[in-house]
Write a protein that binds this DNA or RNA. Sequence first.
DNA 1: CATATGTCCTGAGAGC
DNA 2: TGCTCTCAGGACATAT
Length: 282
Amino acid sequence: MPELPEVETMRRGILSIVGKRVVAAERMPSPRKPILISPTPAVFRKRTVGRTVAAVDRLGKRVVIRLEGGDSIILEPRMTGLVLLADPPTTEHLRFRLTLSDGRTVYYWDRRGLGSVRLFSEKEIAARYDDGTLGPDALAIKRDDFRGRLHRSRRAIKVALLDQRAVAGIGNLYASEMLFVARIDPRKRCTALKKDDWDRLYKAMRDVLLTAVKYEGSTLSDGTYRNALNKAGGYQNHHQVYDRAESLCRGCETTPIRRIVQAQRATFYCPRCQGPKRTAAR
DNA sequence: CATATGTCCTGAGAGC
DNA sequence: TGCTCTCAGGACATAT
């Protein structure tokens, strides 16, 4: 489940392609349902082959390969997509590859195939992402803007944190983790949070995401997520609550982590550390 | 406008 | 052993 830390790790993992020229752009034959790759192969080739990579950016949970001339390849991993320089885990779910002038190849591999590879002009990117459908990045947003974009919502804070229009980059795993660090009950409505809560949450958001980036993301028990060199991340060893239902909380060491469902997604939290009486815990 | 729900997809694991 | 069923959650379309 690539979220901000995993996608940022992918981005950094292929940063060395900047300055290289695109030699080939090919979609791989798919054994089952093909993923979304657009535009057509001929147009894709025409607009990419011969172009030099100008930059590699991140747009929320997407990797953006910017080419000289203004076009960009946007890789959107969604659930099981990987952006690799190393050989992919299997040939079976290899979806796309970009061959470069130095002989290296960027692969897009995606087991479940919910992700996509799309070529956009500058205009298309602006039309799609600069119209409010994608909020400020979680690592770029200012403290007061963060609160201002969320505090009037009547939704539970955990659900609101997943709204990419409010803040971009947070997904299901890191939402639970940052709420634990901030000692906030995930079921609490945004409107019920005080200024102090928002400030703690903002700090927790940055701490959790930056530390997760440092450890190159989280590889869960299914082992799907890998960095660009096909190596597992390390942040799963630092999880406080995610996927730890019934295990003792690492904070209070007395209470089992609870798993609930909010908006059809799993939420994990410590009822004691994130409960109503948390001030008594000293 | 804000918020809620259904949909896509594959493979791991549970249950029988 | 092998079958069926459920579940995981990114983004987006549609419904309320």
